[in-house]
Design a binder for these strands. Sequence first.
DNA 1: TATGAATGAGGTTTCATTCAT
DNA 2: CATGAATGAAACCTCATTCAT
Lengths: 234, 234, 234, 234
Amino acid sequence: MPGTKRKPGETAGSPKATRARDRGSSPQDRRQALIDIAAELFSERGFQGTTVRDIGQAAGVLSGSLYHHFASKETILEEILSTFLDDLLESCRGIVAASPDPAVALRALIEGAFVSIGQHKAAITVLQNERKHLTQFAWFAHVSKVERSVRRIWIKVLEEGIADGTFRPDLDPKITYRFVRDSVWAAVRWYAPSGTLAPAQLAEQYLTLLMNGLSAPSGPGAISMWWMDPAAAK
Amino acid sequence: MPGTKRKPGETAGSPKATRARDRGSSPQDRRQALIDIAAELFSERGFQGTTVRDIGQAAGVLSGSLYHHFASKETILEEILSTFLDDLLESCRGIVAASPDPAVALRALIEGAFVSIGQHKAAITVLQNERKHLTQFAWFAHVSKVERSVRRIWIKVLEEGIADGTFRPDLDPKITYRFVRDSVWAAVRWYAPSGTLAPAQLAEQYLTLLMNGLSAPSGPGAISMWWMDPAAAK
Amino acid sequence: MPGTKRKPGETAGSPKATRARDRGSSPQDRRQALIDIAAELFSERGFQGTTVRDIGQAAGVLSGSLYHHFASKETILEEILSTFLDDLLESCRGIVAASPDPAVALRALIEGAFVSIGQHKAAITVLQNERKHLTQFAWFAHVSKVERSVRRIWIKVLEEGIADGTFRPDLDPKITYRFVRDSVWAAVRWYAPSGTLAPAQLAEQYLTLLMNGLSAPSGPGAISMWWMDPAAAK
Amino acid sequence: MPGTKRKPGETAGSPKATRARDRGSSPQDRRQALIDIAAELFSERGFQGTTVRDIGQAAGVLSGSLYHHFASKETILEEILSTFLDDLLESCRGIVAASPDPAVALRALIEGAFVSIGQHKAAITVLQNERKHLTQFAWFAHVSKVERSVRRIWIKVLEEGIADGTFRPDLDPKITYRFVRDSVWAAVRWYAPSGTLAPAQLAEQYLTLLMNGLSAPSGPGAISMWWMDPAAAK
DNA sequence: TATGAATGAGGTTTCATTCAT
DNA sequence: CATGAATGAAACCTCATTCAT
C-alpha cells in the first residue's frame, strides 16, 4: 500500500486502546495493573531497556498519561522492588518464627525463594541485573536495608544449624548464603513456572543437590574425597 | 547565523589529553587496551549503561576516536564476548580431553569457570544481565553456538558420572548443569579476585558444598532425610 | 564532574519559541505544515544539505520534536515524493482519459508538468538531484513504480501520435520522452512562479519551441503568433 | 567465521593498495589521477554524498594522504569544475570564431555540449545538482564568471539567427538558451556514452527535434494548429 | 608521500518528562 | 484522566581535517 501515510509519535495501540477506559475498577487497581504491566516489561527487557512508551503502549495509553499515576519511571521500579522485598521479609520472618529447627527453616526459606520467582519475576530480574546502576538512587537505600534484614535471617539459620550439628561446620555461612541465594534466584532467567517443570519438582531437585551433594551415596562411612586435588591428596 | 560558535559538547579529559597521541604501544596493544577499558566499564555499569563517551573518557580520547578502531559500540561487546567464549570452549575441551574420569573432569571444569571470573568479568556480567536484549543481534548467534558447545561438554561429563556411579542418579543432568553454571557465575557479581579470598579458596568452598551437600556428615549409615518434605516424610 | 552543566547544543529560535505550543491548527494541518517547511528547505539546499535542525528551526521547534510527527528525516522526503508522484499520475491519467487525440493530450501533459513545478518544486528538485542516492531505500521502489506508470502514459501518447501522422515518425518515442520530460523539469532550477513570467506564458514558449522547432517558418502562408495565448490573441 | 576480529577505521583496500606506490608517473599525473577518481565518485554519489574516505579508498590510499595533494575536498571539486568550464569556454569560442553562420554555429555548440557529457560527466552532474550549495564559496565566482561568458556566446548566436531570419523571431533568446542548455545537459543523468546509443546518434535525434519540432512535416504552408486548445480554437 | 591515530564539530535519533487542552 | 505536542539532554555515529612518525 504505497502512498499510505504513516503516523509515528505515539498512538495508543488500536486493539488495546479501549481497555484503558472501559475498566470499571478502582484507581488503586488501575495503578496496580500498570505496575504489573511495567514489571512484565522490566523483566523481559530490563529497566533501562524498557521505555515509558513501551509501558504506555502495553497498557493502551500514551506515555504522558503514566505521569498521572507515577512521578517517574523510577518510581514504578521502586514500588516493584519494595513490594517484593517487603513480601520476602515478611515471609522469611514468618518462616523462622514458625520453625525453631534450622533444617526445617532452611528448607522453607529455599522453597519460599523458589515460589517468589513466580510472583516477583521482574523484581528479581532487575535486582540481579541492574543493582549496581540502582545504588545511586536514594530510595534504593530502603531496598538495601530490607535485603540486609533478609540476609541476617538466613545467616542466623545457617549459624544455628552449624552450631547444633545439623550443617557441616566447614562452611562459611556468609559465602554459603550467597551461593544458595544466587543459585536459587539465577533460575529466574530460564525458569518458566508455566512450563512442564512444576515449582515443587524444581525445588526438590535443588534441595537434593544442595543437601546431599552431587556424590552418589556410597556405603556407610564411605565418603570419598575424590574431588580433592588428586595430586595434593596423594 | 554565521560566525556564531557553539560550545562543544565534549572535551577529552584534561589531564590525559596529552597522553592521547604519544602512546608508544603497538597498534594491536592499543586496540586491546581499548577493549579492556570498555570491558571494565561494561562490567561495572552494564552495556546499555555505558556510553561511548564514558569509554572514550576512560581511555583519554574523544568518543569519535573510538570509531577509528571499532565499527560500533556493539562491535566492542561482540569482541569481548567472543573472546571469552572462545577461551572458555578451548579450556573445556582441553579439560575433558585430559581427564577421562568424570569426577576429575567436573572438578577441573568448575575450577576453570571460577578462574574465568577473574579474567572475563565483563563478558560474564554482560552475558548474565543482558542476554535477552542481545539475542536480537545477528552476531550473537555465534556466542550462542559456542555456549551450546560448552553446555554439551558439561552435560556429557555429568551423564558419564551418573552412568559410572560417581554422581547420584536422581538428578537431571540438564537442570544440574544450569544450577552449577549459574551458581558459579553468579559470583561474578560480588567476587573480587583482588580481595582477601583467593580463587582457589572460593572454589574449594564451593566444591565442598556441591559435592557433599550442606548436611553435616553424621555417623555411619546415618544419612537422615530431614530435608524431605516433613509432611511427606511422616 | 557532577554539577557541571553543559551548554545545550540547540535552542528553539527565540522569537518563535512561544508560538510553538499555541498553534491552533488541526493535527493534520500541523503535520502538513511541517512537510511544507521541509519541502521548501529540501528544494533550496537539497535533502542531504538540509539538517533536521534546520527544519526544526524553520518550524520553530527543536529537532527532536519532529520525531513526534515523523519516524525519520527520510520519512518526510518519502511523503513529499509520494504525494508528488501520486498527484502526477492521477493528473496524467485524467488527461489521457479526457483527450483521445494525441496532440491534445500531449499539450495537456506538458502544461500539467509545468503547473506541477509550482506545486511540487521540492519533490522535482530532489528527484532530479538525488535520485541515485535514493534508490538504495526500499520505499523508493514505490516512487519508481509510479514514475514508470507516468512514463508509459507519455510514451503511449507519443506512439499514437506518430501512428496517426500527427508527430514526425523519425523520432524514438523513448528518447523524445526523456528530452521533453527533462527539459520541462529542468526549469525547476531557475523558474520562480512568483516572478514576472506566468506559468502559462512559459508553457507557451516551450510549446512553440517543441512543436515547430527553432527554425523560422519560411514557406508561404507562414503563420506567426499561433503560440500566443488564444484568449489574448483575440 | 566467528571470532574473526574486524578492523574498521581505514585500511587501504587490499587489492588496489599496491596501485598507490608502483606508479612510476609524475606527481602531476598522480594528482590528475586522483582528480579523475574523485570526479567519478562525485558524479555517482554527489559531492556531499562522497566522503574523502571514499576517494582515498578508490585511489588505494588513506584519506589523510589526499591532503598532501589538495588543501581540501572542496579544492578537488573546484579543479574539476574549473577544468570543465575552461574547456567549454574555449570550445565555444573556437566554434563561433569558425562559424559565422548562426545555424551552423548553433548546431556545433549543441554537438559540442553533447560531447562534453562524455568528458566532463562529473562536473556537469555536480553543477546541475549542487549549484545552490556551491555559490557560497568564494572560488565559485570564477566558475560563475566563465558560465556567464559561455551564456553570452550562445545568446549572441541565437540573437543573430533571429535577426537574420534563420530562427523564429517569436522566441526569447534567454529562455531558449536555458531550455536548450538544460535539455542537453539533463541527458547526463541517463546517457551512458558506452552504451548502444552513439553520441552522434543522440545529437541527431535532438537536433531533429530542436530544429524542426515534433510536428510531422506536412505540405508547404500547411502548418496545422493542432496544438491549440481545441475548445478555444473552435 | 603515506600512515594511522586523533580531533571537534555536527549529524540523526531517542527518550523521560512537562503541560495546555 | 487522557491526549498530543513539545522540550532538552544525551545517545551513537560520521567525517573533514591535522599531524607525528
